[in-house]
Amino acid sequence: MARLTLNALGKTFGTTTAVAAFSLDVKDGELVCLLGPSGSGKSTLLRMVGGFETPTSGEVLIDGEVVTRTPPERRPTAMVFQSHALWTHMNVFGNIAFGLRIRRLPKAEIASRVGRVLALVGLEGYGKRQTNQLSGGQQQRVAIARALVLEPKILLLDEPFASLDQHLRERLREEVRDIQHRLGITTLFVTHGQDEALSLADRIVVLKEGRAEQVGAPAEVYRSPATPFVAGFIGSMNRLPGSVEAGRFRHGALELPLEGVPDGPAELAVRPEHLVVRAAPGGGAASLRRLTDYGTHRIIDLETSEGARLKAQVADGADLPQGPGLQLEPTAWAVFRNDQVIARSPA
């Protein structure tokens, strides 16, 4: 259990800035997800916390102690790598016990601690197996056990499930969340999967080009994206270009009342599940293009009279007429101008 503080942390490689003056405070036992596309600096950030990259500026503090220049072998952190990074010449027990052997713990204690973490990750009795005899999911559990056995203050996970299939990923995600809750270990989790971040995190940091675009709870980031980038990156989002004129947002036949917003170009962002579609006998703002059944829900593809493509989530959709004549009603939305929110739907 520990508190992690990143203070104006920066990293440049030559002329490229990977992370720019990034600050974050991770509370005791909190799980924070660093979410962003490739090249957004999330892995570099994690590696700086782990000690594998030296920051160009700023500092890393664990429980108030500056560890910015401390090498990884002397940091109270443990990292789970994307590629498992197991040592193939050692068996499962050897992999997990290695860190404890370095610390010269008594054999009985090593055996007991390894047994405990193996049980924690659901691999009892696997100690004598060679790592190449394990499936991808089992190998990743060994990697997690190897990190947990040292009882680190901070657990760092660098896209640990990226190489696993969807089903296994979901299962391991739940297990990691469960273990993290039980141990109450402060965790920094890097991912580029929004589902992973939304289902795991206490807080999400959305990164873009080495800067935090938004920091907040999953529901906040999903429901109230601070920038068009966050809106587009998390979940599915319809973005309609239009303009604000005389207190109304207009995109073709679609209109929304906006109070106190100056006139000018703007962009409406609305999620498919917040877009109600109705048949409009007298002609509407959009036409139906396609209906796709995903089993749990149905998505309809629409095209507005201005040529913009939209998606809407519907319960049935079979009653909607083909062709033009659909009325659109956003129930929750945000309007952006110059990458800033200028209006939101009433809560």
Partner: peptide, 18 residues
Amino acid sequence: VPNPAIEAARDVGARPLT
């Protein structure tokens, strides 16, 4: 010898000789 294998060893506390 992949880099992550070396980094993982450093992460669990291995000094250069170990």
